[in-house]
Simulated scan of single mutants.
Amino acid sequence: MASNPVRKLARITGKPGRAAELRAALKELELATVTEPGCREFRFYQAISAEDSFVLIEHFTDEAALKLHLQLPYTQSFFARQLVDKVEAIDLPG
């Protein structure tokens, strides 16, 4: 049975005044996530015109790989920091 890749584009809005902290936390998360066996791509970009605005591109081999990623300690630690004000995600074609 073929697995369905999971690809998302997420627009992340950080809490005001915490852009540098969010950028550092996203970089840590990116470095850890790209080593996961089910991760094909996990990259973030910061907007030039709005320092609190970031875009994250994530691509996992399947839904199980994404679910595992969300349960890992470094992912949980990222969310526990509460640096994010809002996330808008859209699915991309696999």
Rank of each mutant, 00 (worst) to 15 (best):
A19K: 03
D91N: 12
R40H: 07
L56E: 02
P5T: 05
R23I: 03
L92Y: 14
L26H: 01
P37Q: 02
S49T: 04
C39F: 01
R11H: 10
E28M: 05
I90Q: 14
F42A: 01
E58L: 10
S3A: 09
A47V: 01
F79R: 06
K27D: 08
A65L: 11
L68G: 03
P16A: 15
P73C: 09
A19H: 01
V84G: 00
E28Y: 06
Q82I: 07
A50T: 08
L22M: 02
D52E: 14
I57W: 02
F78T: 09
A80H: 10
A89S: 15
I90E: 14
G14C: 12
I57D: 01
V84K: 05
K27E: 04
L72M: 05
R23T: 09
V55K: 04
F54Y: 12
E36T: 15
L72W: 06
V34Y: 11
L68K: 12
T75R: 08
D52G: 10
Q71K: 15
V34C: 07
Q76H: 12
T35N: 08
A25M: 00
S49A: 01
L22K: 01
K15W: 06
I90G: 13
A25C: 00
L29N: 07
A50E: 11
Q46T: 05
I57M: 03
P16C: 11
N4M: 07
T61M: 14
G14T: 02
T13M: 07
G38P: 00
L83N: 03
F60L: 04
T33S: 08
R11K: 14
T75C: 10
L66W: 09
S77W: 01
A20D: 14
G14K: 04
Q71A: 13
V84P: 12
S3Y: 13
E41K: 15
K86C: 07
A24L: 04
D62E: 07
A32L: 12
E63L: 10
A80T: 11
I57P: 00
F44G: 02
K86W: 14
I48A: 12
A89T: 15
G14N: 03
A2L: 12
S53N: 03
R81E: 10
S77E: 15
E30R: 07
R40Y: 05
E51I: 14
I48K: 09
R81G: 13
L83T: 01
Q71V: 08
K86T: 15
R23K: 11
E21I: 01
R23Q: 15
P5H: 03
E28H: 06
Q76G: 09
T13F: 14
L70I: 03
V87R: 13
A32W: 06
S49W: 05
P93W: 15
G14W: 04
E88C: 03
P16K: 13
M1H: 13
R23H: 04
V34G: 05
